[in-house]
Design a protein around this nucleic acid. Sequence first.
DNA 1: ACTTGACCTAGACAAAGTCCATTGTAGGAT
DNA 2: ATCCTACAATGGACTTTGTCTAGGTCAAGT
Lengths: 124, 124
Amino acid sequence: MTAQRRVVAEVLDGDHVHLTADEVHARAVAKLPEISRATVYNTLGELVSLGEVLEVATDRRAKRYDPNAHKPHQHLVCAQCGAIRDVHPAGNPLGDLPDAERFGFVVSAVEVTYRGLCPSCAGA
Amino acid sequence: MTAQRRVVAEVLDGDHVHLTADEVHARAVAKLPEISRATVYNTLGELVSLGEVLEVATDRRAKRYDPNAHKPHQHLVCAQCGAIRDVHPAGNPLGDLPDAERFGFVVSAVEVTYRGLCPSCAGA
DNA sequence: ACTTGACCTAGACAAAGTCCATTGTAGGAT
DNA sequence: ATCCTACAATGGACTTTGTCTAGGTCAAGT
């Protein structure tokens, strides 16, 4: 546990945030000015490997990092402003895929992304 | 309808393919050598706007373009080789999101990506 | 003190996509 | 037939996101 890794972990802790790698880097620099981009990327990669943090790809721009890795959840994304909320759908989406639709695949995970407009974007 | 747009449409037609923009460009160049990358991107963007083609983002690398836009479906992706199959899960995933989990959003769409191993990658 | 190895840094590099100024073209107006 | 205008296409520069590499630093063990 080095100073750099502690800073990255601190940045992700706290709110239910979904930061991009660059945002993590920017906040880390605020606490530890000499931290480099490569170190942030490396540390995020390690946290993902350890299962402490999830990668979320709700758009095709930057990956986002979700510290809420221990409770299974899906994401709800505003198509306009990009706001992201964690949500917990009912039912088991994996079970909804019939054997006939599995084409012999060993299916092990499912990601669900709900898209719509958040209250402020829908009101505007 | 120009020659360039016809060529892009032809490339996407046919099989149930999921090509990246670069693959579309490569195949378009084979038919019309002077077509430029920008034109392929523009044309793909127009086809997406018209609802004739879907953008699929199963990985964080290139977007893929799915000509099967008229029948709702989801995707099953091999985590190892990247193979993509169209699948049709049972049930209505949109309905699985309770009102209490919508946070006031107007939810209009849902994307489901199943991940696993295809038969050849699972066997190897 | 020297070696070793893990970690960090800066910057170069790569892939995917977008933007922009210029050039080309097709159809209508004169 | 020629000109005009609007739209489309082109090539290349640029941006964003992420990875890689070569070298430097530091602490622990011998």
